[in-house]
Structure formats: C-alpha cells, structure tokens
Amino acid sequence: NQASVVANQLIPINTALTLVMMRAEVVTPMGIPAVDIPRLVSMQVNRAVPLGTTLMPDMVKGYA
C-alpha cells in the first residue's frame, strides 16, 4: 500500500504548505501520494484542512 499525504496540523485556507505540516500515512481512500511531498512545499491549500485529514489533489492549488 502506498502512503498518502496527511495533515500534521490544522492548515488554514490559503496557507502555503511546509514539510512540518505534512506526514506520510497509509490511508483509505488514497490521497496525494507521499512521494509528492517535496512538490507540495510552498503550494497553497484552497480550503482549511483539519489535523489528520488526507490531502486530495483538489485541495491544493496548482497540484492537479
């Protein structure tokens, strides 16, 4: 099973992602693959992402 990107903290809307905000976890359903974490750094979320939420492609501006 491939790990997905999960929020390590509450990420407010329009926040630029940093490594500290994300962790890799095997979850269902799968979200953004953990291998993409370096690519996500400095991209912004388009909604508030609660702690423990799996990041989906439509939550990150410019990802999809």
Rank of each mutant, 00 (worst) to 15 (best):
51 L>R: 15
59 M>L: 07
60 V>Q: 00
38 P>Q: 13
16 A>G: 06
11 I>K: 00
43 M>L: 10
11 I>S: 00
39 R>G: 12
36 D>P: 01
53 T>G: 11
20 V>N: 12
42 S>L: 11
26 V>A: 09
62 G>Y: 07
17 L>N: 00
62 G>E: 15
60 V>F: 05
34 A>Q: 08
45 V>L: 13
30 M>I: 14
42 S>I: 03
12 P>S: 09
56 M>W: 05
20 V>H: 07
59 M>P: 00
53 T>L: 15
32 I>A: 03
8 N>M: 15
3 A>Q: 13
34 A>P: 04
48 A>V: 08
24 A>E: 06
7 A>P: 01
63 Y>Q: 04
36 D>Q: 08
56 M>S: 08
61 K>M: 14
6 V>S: 03
29 P>T: 09
29 P>C: 03
46 N>D: 13
13 I>H: 09
35 V>K: 15
27 V>K: 12
27 V>R: 08
30 M>D: 08
35 V>R: 11
50 P>N: 12
28 T>A: 09
36 D>F: 08
42 S>H: 09
41 V>K: 06
50 P>S: 11
50 P>V: 09
57 P>N: 08
12 P>T: 09
10 L>Q: 06
26 V>T: 05
36 D>E: 10
13 I>S: 13
48 A>E: 10
42 S>M: 11
4 S>Y: 03
14 N>L: 06
54 T>G: 03
32 I>E: 00
13 I>K: 12
57 P>V: 14
3 A>C: 04
36 D>R: 05
31 G>Y: 02
17 L>W: 02
6 V>M: 12
22 M>E: 00
4 S>H: 01
51 L>W: 11
44 Q>G: 04
28 T>Q: 15
54 T>L: 06
52 G>E: 08
38 P>H: 15
11 I>H: 01
41 V>E: 10
6 V>D: 00
60 V>R: 01
58 D>F: 10
22 M>T: 02
4 S>R: 02
7 A>Q: 01
13 I>V: 12
35 V>P: 15
35 V>S: 15
43 M>W: 11
31 G>T: 01
26 V>M: 15
2 Q>V: 13
34 A>L: 04
46 N>K: 15
28 T>M: 11
32 I>Y: 02
22 M>Y: 02
25 E>R: 05
15 T>A: 08
49 V>M: 08
20 V>E: 14
54 T>R: 04
16 A>P: 13
58 D>T: 10
36 D>K: 05
61 K>V: 15
6 V>Y: 03
3 A>R: 05
21 M>G: 04
33 P>Y: 04
53 T>A: 12
6 V>H: 02
9 Q>Y: 11
4 S>L: 01
10 L>I: 14
34 A>C: 03
9 Q>M: 13
10 L>G: 11
33 P>V: 05
54 T>V: 11
21 M>C: 02
9 Q>D: 13
8 N>R: 06
45 V>I: 08
63 Y>N: 06
24 A>T: 15
42 S>T: 08
15 T>L: 05
51 L>Q: 08
7 A>K: 01
63 Y>E: 05
12 P>E: 09
14 N>S: 09
11 I>N: 00
47 R>D: 07
25 E>Q: 07
18 T>A: 07
6 V>T: 07
58 D>L: 06
17 L>V: 04
34 A>K: 09
1 N>F: 08
27 V>Q: 05
31 G>F: 02
17 L>Q: 00
54 T>M: 04
56 M>F: 15
3 A>E: 12
28 T>E: 08
57 P>G: 13
10 L>W: 11
26 V>K: 14
51 L>K: 12
25 E>A: 09
47 R>E: 09
44 Q>N: 15
39 R>F: 11
10 L>N: 13
44 Q>K: 14
5 V>N: 01
42 S>E: 12
55 L>P: 01
61 K>A: 13
26 V>H: 15
40 L>D: 00
22 M>D: 01
48 A>F: 13
